[in-house]
Each structure stands twice: as C-alpha cells, then as structure tokens.
C-alpha cells in the first residue's frame, strides 16, 4: 500500500443556482473587476488515502464523493490526478 493524495473539486452543477457565486461576482464588479462573466463557488478537498495503485486511490475517493463529499442533487465533482506521498503504509 502507498499513500496517495487525491485533490477533489466540488462545484455546483451547471444550471443550479449558486447564490454565493452570484454575490461574490457582484461584489467584485463593484470593486471594478468588470471583466467578470460568471463565478461559481465550490469546495476544494484533499484526501490522503492508502491504496495499492493510483487507480485504486482514485476509485476510493470517487466513491467517497458519491456517498458523502458531494451532494449529487446540486453538486458535481472533479478528481485530480493522485500524487504519491511520503509515509504510506507498506
């Protein structure tokens, strides 16, 4: 087993209202950032997971997202490539 770090981005699904994104975009526009077209605010999570391979790490984190980390009603998630960490269990 090795320790992998899997970063996860969780973002509001397309078409789902994102009140936070809208409020932040409005505030930035009023500060003069008038090139903003849209802002969506989500969450960024890193999961360190023990797995036999990068593929296993990804698959474990995917199932965590489906079960708990993301709310499938309103959120999508994107898994980034796992990176090997120091200190994994052997």
């Amino acid at each position: 087993m090795q320790l992998y770090r899997v970063p996860v981005q969780i973002i509001p699904r397309p078409g789902i209202l994102d009140p936070q994104g809208a409020a932040v975009a409005g505030a930035l526009r009023s500060l003069g950032f008038d090139t903003i077209a849209d802002i969506r605010v989500g969450r960024f999570i890193t999961v360190d997971v023990n797995a036999a391979s990068a593929a296993d790490a990804t698959s474990a984190v995917r199932s965590m997202c489906e079960k708990l980390l993301a709310n499938p009603v309103i959120e999508d998630f994107v898994l980034e490539e796992p990176t090997l960490q120091q200190g994994g269990q052997s």
Binding site: P19, Q20, A23, V24, A27, S30, L31, V41
Partner: peptide, 14 residues
C-alpha cells in the same frame, strides 16, 4: 450582510 457569502463580513467591508 451579503448573505455571509464567501466569509461573514468580507464583502460588506467594501
């Protein structure tokens, strides 16, 4: 203020 979106107070202070 501003729904407490982002961080409470973060937007209002501007």
């Amino acid at each position: 203020s501003y729904g407490d979106y982002l961080r409470p107070g973060a937007i209002a202070r501007f």
